[in-house]
């Protein structure tokens, strides 16, 4: 395959994943069952991750899958299943008249923002900071994150793990069955 096909390939995948993510997002907000809605959200997250990878941001793509599609969605599903919210008939939602009107206005506002942004005279390219360039040339894609994380912010990083440990221990202590007395 020659280089002349690359832009075509790129466009094809951009539209493919873009359409998947939009379709999945529409399905996400229209499903009645919370579990089905959550699964559609996972599909949206995966499609977005693919778009990130196409923009040469592989690290953000991987993080998107791990954090959003992985951890956060699992928590969503857990809560849905633990609270037994699986029956659509028992649910009330905000899809009334006013909810639709407000959502419509919000959508229009976002659309207007994007339109103004595309017409703005400002350069739309992000300027890469010099330090990021120098790190990227030596440390690869995640070097720019890993270097500072384990050098300048080493202490904050390690202390955060203690913080999470305390939070887990606290949750277990409070969530456990009462000790028999």
């Amino acid at each position: 395959m020659g280089n002349e096909f690359l832009p075509l390939l790129y466009s094809f995948h951009f539209y493919l994943f873009g359409l998947i993510s939009i379709a999945a997002a529409i399905a996400f907000v229209t499903r009645k069952s919370p579990v089905a809605a959550a699964m559609w959200l996972v599909v949206t997250m995966f499609a977005l991750a693919a778009l990130y990878v196409m923009m040469d941001a592989q690290f953000i793509g991987v993080m998107q899958v791990l954090v959003y599609a992985g951890a956060i969605m699992v928590v969503f599903l857990f809560v849905v299943m633990l609270l037994n919210l699986g029956h659509p008939s028992e649910l009330s939602d905000i899809r009334g008249k006013w909810g639709r009107i407000i959502a419509g206005f919000l959508g229009l506002a976002l659309l207007a923002e994007i339109m103004t942004l595309t017409r703005s005279p400002l350069e739309l390219k992000l300027v890469v900071p010099a330090i990021a360039v120098s790190v990227n040339s030596t440390g690869g894609i995640i070097g720019g994150v890993a270097g500072p994380l384990f050098r300048e912010y080493l202490l904050a990083f390690e202390l955060t793990s203690i913080l999470l440990l305390v939070a887990i221990a606290g949750a277990v202590v409070l969530g456990r069955k009462r000790s028999a007395n």
């Binding site: 202390l159 955060t160 203690i162 913080l163 305390v166 606290g170 409070l174």
Partner: peptide
Amino acid sequence: IMAAARDLMIVFIGIEIMSIAVYVLAGMNR
């Protein structure tokens, strides 16, 4: 950690380590 911190990030994490432990301790009598 809070008393040692000379960086707002460390201050914040120190405060959270302390606070989360104390939130749980305050509700210890179930």
